[in-house]
Protein backbone atom coordinates (compact mmCIF):
# COMPACT_ATOMS: atom_id res chain seq x y z
CA UNK A 1 0.00 0.00 0.00
CA UNK A 2 2.90 2.40 0.72
CA UNK A 3 4.14 1.98 -2.85
CA UNK A 4 0.62 2.78 -4.07
CA UNK A 5 0.46 6.06 -2.12
CA UNK A 6 4.02 6.97 -3.11
CA UNK A 7 3.28 6.65 -6.84
CA UNK A 8 2.08 9.50 -9.04
CA UNK A 9 -1.52 8.21 -8.93
CA UNK A 10 -1.25 7.65 -5.16
CA UNK A 11 -0.17 11.22 -4.51
CA UNK A 12 -3.03 12.39 -6.70
CA UNK A 13 -5.37 10.15 -4.67
CA UNK A 14 -4.34 12.01 -1.51
CA UNK A 15 -5.09 15.32 -3.28
CA UNK A 16 -8.45 13.95 -4.38
CA UNK A 17 -9.55 12.52 -1.01
CA UNK A 18 -8.41 15.58 0.96
CA UNK A 19 -10.08 17.81 -1.63
CA UNK A 20 -13.39 15.94 -1.40
CA UNK A 21 -13.20 16.16 2.39
CA UNK A 22 -12.65 19.92 2.18
CA UNK A 23 -15.64 20.12 -0.19
CA UNK A 24 -17.81 18.49 2.51
CA UNK A 25 -16.50 21.05 4.99
CA UNK A 26 -17.43 23.89 2.62
CA UNK A 27 -21.01 22.60 2.35
CA UNK A 28 -21.41 22.55 6.16
CA UNK A 29 -19.71 25.93 6.51
CA UNK A 30 -21.89 27.63 3.90
CA UNK A 31 -25.04 26.08 5.40
CA UNK A 32 -24.28 27.53 8.84
CA UNK A 33 -23.19 30.86 7.33
CA UNK A 34 -26.48 31.19 5.47
CA UNK A 35 -28.09 31.69 8.90
CA UNK A 36 -26.32 35.08 8.96
CA UNK A 37 -28.92 36.29 6.49
CA UNK A 38 -31.87 35.47 8.78
CA UNK A 39 -32.97 38.94 9.98
CA UNK A 40 -33.45 38.06 13.68
CA UNK A 41 -30.52 39.99 15.16
CA UNK A 42 -28.32 36.92 14.82
CA UNK A 43 -30.11 34.59 17.26
CA UNK A 44 -30.41 31.70 14.82
CA UNK A 45 -26.79 32.07 13.69
CA UNK A 46 -25.63 32.16 17.30
CA UNK A 47 -27.62 29.00 18.02
CA UNK A 48 -26.03 27.35 14.96
CA UNK A 49 -22.53 28.46 15.97
CA UNK A 50 -23.17 27.20 19.51
CA UNK A 51 -24.22 23.83 18.13
CA UNK A 52 -21.09 23.61 15.98
CA UNK A 53 -18.82 24.60 18.88
CA UNK A 54 -20.28 22.14 21.40
CA UNK A 55 -21.14 19.18 19.17
CA UNK A 56 -18.74 16.29 20.00
CA UNK A 57 -18.72 15.08 16.38
CA UNK A 58 -17.42 18.46 15.23
CA UNK A 59 -14.70 18.34 17.91
CA UNK A 60 -13.47 15.06 16.46
CA UNK A 61 -13.64 16.35 12.90
CA UNK A 62 -11.84 19.65 13.60
CA UNK A 63 -8.30 18.15 13.87
CA UNK A 64 -9.11 15.97 10.85
CA UNK A 65 -9.97 19.12 8.97
CA UNK A 66 -6.60 20.63 9.85
CA UNK A 67 -4.90 17.46 8.57
CA UNK A 68 -7.02 17.62 5.40
CA UNK A 69 -5.86 21.18 4.74
CA UNK A 70 -2.22 20.29 5.42
CA UNK A 71 -2.24 17.20 3.16
CA UNK A 72 -3.95 19.15 0.37
CA UNK A 73 -1.48 22.05 0.60
CA UNK A 74 1.70 19.99 1.04
CA UNK A 75 0.87 17.56 -1.76
CA UNK A 76 -0.34 20.36 -4.02
CA UNK A 77 3.05 22.07 -3.74
CA UNK A 78 4.96 18.77 -3.99
CA UNK A 79 3.10 17.66 -7.14
CA UNK A 80 3.53 21.05 -8.79
CA UNK A 81 7.29 21.06 -8.13
CA UNK A 82 7.62 17.50 -9.50
CA UNK A 83 5.60 18.46 -12.55
CA UNK A 84 7.77 21.48 -13.28
CA UNK A 85 10.80 19.19 -13.17
CA UNK A 86 9.11 16.63 -15.45
CA UNK A 87 8.21 19.37 -17.90
CA UNK A 88 11.88 20.43 -18.14
CA UNK A 89 13.33 23.93 -18.42
CA UNK A 90 12.75 24.52 -22.17
CA UNK A 91 9.59 26.38 -23.23
CA UNK A 92 7.93 26.49 -26.64
CA UNK A 93 8.90 29.60 -28.59
CA UNK A 94 5.60 29.44 -30.47
CA UNK A 95 3.62 29.27 -27.22
CA UNK A 96 0.70 27.02 -26.39
CA UNK A 97 -2.26 27.32 -28.72
CA UNK A 98 -4.13 24.23 -27.56
CA UNK A 99 -7.81 25.16 -27.37
CA UNK A 100 -10.44 23.89 -24.95
CA UNK A 101 -8.21 23.70 -21.89
CA UNK A 102 -9.67 25.63 -18.96
CA UNK A 103 -7.58 28.35 -17.34
CA UNK A 104 -8.47 26.98 -13.90
CA UNK A 105 -7.03 23.55 -14.66
CA UNK A 106 -3.65 25.08 -15.49
CA UNK A 107 -3.50 27.44 -12.51
CA UNK A 108 -4.64 25.32 -9.58
CA UNK A 109 -1.58 26.22 -7.47
CA UNK A 110 -2.03 29.97 -8.00
CA UNK A 111 -5.73 29.66 -7.12
CA UNK A 112 -4.83 27.53 -4.11
CA UNK A 113 -2.37 30.16 -2.90
CA UNK A 114 -5.10 32.82 -3.28
CA UNK A 115 -7.44 30.75 -1.11
CA UNK A 116 -4.65 30.04 1.41
CA UNK A 117 -3.80 33.75 1.67
CA UNK A 118 -7.45 34.50 2.32
CA UNK A 119 -7.52 31.73 4.94
CA UNK A 120 -4.81 33.45 6.99
CA UNK A 121 -6.98 36.56 7.33
CA UNK A 122 -10.09 34.46 7.85
CA UNK A 123 -8.54 32.44 10.67
CA UNK A 124 -7.18 35.60 12.31
CA UNK A 125 -10.61 37.25 12.05
CA UNK A 126 -12.68 34.49 13.57
CA UNK A 127 -11.03 31.23 14.59
CA UNK A 128 -8.28 32.88 16.70
CA UNK A 129 -10.78 35.15 18.47
CA UNK A 130 -13.36 32.44 19.06
CA UNK A 131 -11.02 29.66 20.14
CA UNK A 132 -7.93 31.34 21.59
CA UNK A 133 -7.90 35.01 22.47
CA UNK A 134 -11.58 35.82 22.88
CA UNK A 135 -13.04 39.20 21.99
CA UNK A 136 -15.26 41.73 23.82
CA UNK A 137 -17.81 41.36 21.01
CA UNK A 138 -18.25 37.68 21.85
CA UNK A 139 -19.83 38.56 25.22
CA UNK A 140 -22.55 36.08 26.10
CA UNK A 141 -26.07 36.50 24.92
CA UNK A 142 -29.14 34.39 25.54
CA UNK A 143 -30.94 32.69 22.67
CA UNK A 144 -33.90 30.41 22.59
CA UNK A 145 -32.83 26.94 21.44
CA UNK A 146 -35.81 24.61 20.96
CA UNK A 147 -37.71 26.48 23.66
CA UNK A 148 -34.81 26.41 26.13
CA UNK A 149 -33.12 29.76 26.85
CA UNK A 150 -29.39 29.09 26.44
CA UNK A 151 -26.43 31.34 27.11
CA UNK A 152 -24.14 31.40 24.07
CA UNK A 153 -21.22 33.44 22.69
CA UNK A 154 -22.40 36.28 20.49
CA UNK A 155 -20.58 35.08 17.36
CA UNK A 156 -22.98 37.10 15.24
CA UNK A 157 -21.75 40.38 16.76
CA UNK A 158 -18.16 39.52 15.84
CA UNK A 159 -19.08 38.51 12.27
CA UNK A 160 -21.28 41.55 11.84
CA UNK A 161 -18.57 43.94 13.09
CA UNK A 162 -15.91 42.27 10.91
CA UNK A 163 -18.07 42.65 7.80
CA UNK A 164 -18.47 46.35 8.65
CA UNK A 165 -15.05 46.95 7.08
CA UNK A 166 -15.14 47.34 3.31
CA UNK A 167 -11.59 46.08 2.74
CA UNK A 168 -12.33 42.85 4.60
CA UNK A 169 -15.44 42.28 2.48
CA UNK A 170 -13.39 42.88 -0.69
CA UNK A 171 -10.76 40.35 0.42
CA UNK A 172 -13.52 37.83 1.23
CA UNK A 173 -15.08 38.24 -2.21
CA UNK A 174 -11.68 37.75 -3.88
CA UNK A 175 -11.09 34.64 -1.73
CA UNK A 176 -14.53 33.23 -2.56
CA UNK A 177 -14.18 33.83 -6.31
CA UNK A 178 -10.69 32.26 -6.25
CA UNK A 179 -12.18 29.28 -4.43
CA UNK A 180 -14.99 28.99 -6.99
CA UNK A 181 -12.54 28.91 -9.91
CA UNK A 182 -10.38 26.39 -8.00
CA UNK A 183 -13.43 24.19 -7.47
CA UNK A 184 -14.58 24.51 -11.08
CA UNK A 185 -11.65 22.25 -11.97
CA UNK A 186 -11.09 20.58 -8.59
CA UNK A 187 -14.54 19.03 -8.21
CA UNK A 188 -14.59 16.90 -11.38
CA UNK A 189 -10.84 16.33 -11.21
CA UNK A 190 -11.18 14.73 -7.75
CA UNK A 191 -13.65 12.21 -9.15
CA UNK A 192 -11.52 11.57 -12.24
CA UNK A 193 -8.51 10.80 -10.02
CA UNK A 194 -10.30 8.18 -7.91
CA UNK A 195 -11.45 6.62 -11.17
CA UNK A 196 -15.10 7.64 -10.86
CA UNK A 197 -15.49 8.96 -14.37
CA UNK A 198 -16.02 7.73 -17.91
CA UNK A 199 -17.26 9.08 -21.23
CA UNK A 200 -20.74 9.80 -19.80
CA UNK A 201 -19.83 10.91 -16.28
CA UNK A 202 -17.16 13.35 -17.32
CA UNK A 203 -19.74 15.75 -18.75
CA UNK A 204 -22.05 15.27 -15.77
CA UNK A 205 -19.28 15.81 -13.24
CA UNK A 206 -17.94 18.95 -14.88
CA UNK A 207 -21.43 20.51 -15.12
CA UNK A 208 -22.15 19.53 -11.50
CA UNK A 209 -18.72 20.81 -10.45
CA UNK A 210 -19.28 24.19 -12.08
CA UNK A 211 -22.69 24.60 -10.48
CA UNK A 212 -21.30 23.59 -7.09
CA UNK A 213 -18.27 25.88 -7.44
CA UNK A 214 -20.38 28.96 -8.12
CA UNK A 215 -22.94 28.16 -5.41
CA UNK A 216 -20.00 28.13 -2.98
CA UNK A 217 -18.31 31.21 -4.49
CA UNK A 218 -21.42 33.37 -4.85
CA UNK A 219 -22.83 32.05 -1.55
CA UNK A 220 -19.87 33.07 0.59
CA UNK A 221 -19.25 36.38 -1.14
CA UNK A 222 -22.90 37.45 -1.16
CA UNK A 223 -23.17 36.82 2.59
CA UNK A 224 -20.19 39.11 3.22
CA UNK A 225 -21.51 41.80 0.84
CA UNK A 226 -25.09 41.68 2.17
CA UNK A 227 -23.79 41.87 5.75
CA UNK A 228 -21.82 44.99 4.81
CA UNK A 229 -24.69 46.64 2.96
CA UNK A 230 -27.83 45.78 4.90
CA UNK A 231 -27.02 44.29 8.28
CA UNK A 232 -24.90 47.02 9.88
CA UNK A 233 -26.39 48.45 13.12
CA UNK A 234 -26.55 52.14 12.11
Amino acid sequence: MSSTLGSSIGKKLLMSISGLFLILFLIVHLTVNSLLLVPDGGDLFNAGAHFMATNPAIRVIEPLLAIGFLVHIIYGVKLTLENRKARGPARYASGKKTTGVTWASQNMLVLGITVAAFLVLHIANFWVKMKLTGDPLLEHTTVDIAGVPTEVENAYALVNATFGYLWIVVVYVIGAVGLAIHLSHGFWSAFQTIGFSNLKWRKRLSVLGNIFAWIIGIGFSSIAVLQYLFYQPN
Binding site: S3, S7, S8, I9, K11, K12, L79, E82, N83, K85, A86, R87, K96, T98, T99, G100, V101, T102, S105, Q106, M108, H185, W188, S189, Q192, T193
Partner: peptide, 19 residues
Amino acid sequence: AKMDELGFGNCTNTGACEV
Protein backbone atom coordinates in the same frame (compact mmCIF):
# COMPACT_ATOMS: atom_id res chain seq x y z
CA ALA B 1 5.90 2.42 -11.73
CA LYS B 2 8.00 2.56 -14.90
CA MET B 3 6.32 5.80 -16.00
CA ASP B 4 7.14 7.41 -12.62
CA GLU B 5 10.68 6.04 -12.65
CA LEU B 6 11.37 7.56 -16.08
CA GLY B 7 10.53 11.02 -14.75
CA PHE B 8 7.15 11.74 -16.37
CA GLY B 9 4.95 14.15 -14.42
CA ASN B 10 1.74 13.75 -12.44
CA CYS B 11 -1.56 14.14 -14.29
CA THR B 12 -3.67 17.14 -13.24
CA ASN B 13 -6.55 16.45 -15.62
CA THR B 14 -6.16 19.59 -17.73
CA GLY B 15 -7.13 17.65 -20.86
CA ALA B 16 -4.59 19.28 -23.20
CA CYS B 17 -3.37 15.78 -24.17
CA GLU B 18 -6.81 14.71 -25.34
CA VAL B 19 -7.21 17.84 -27.48
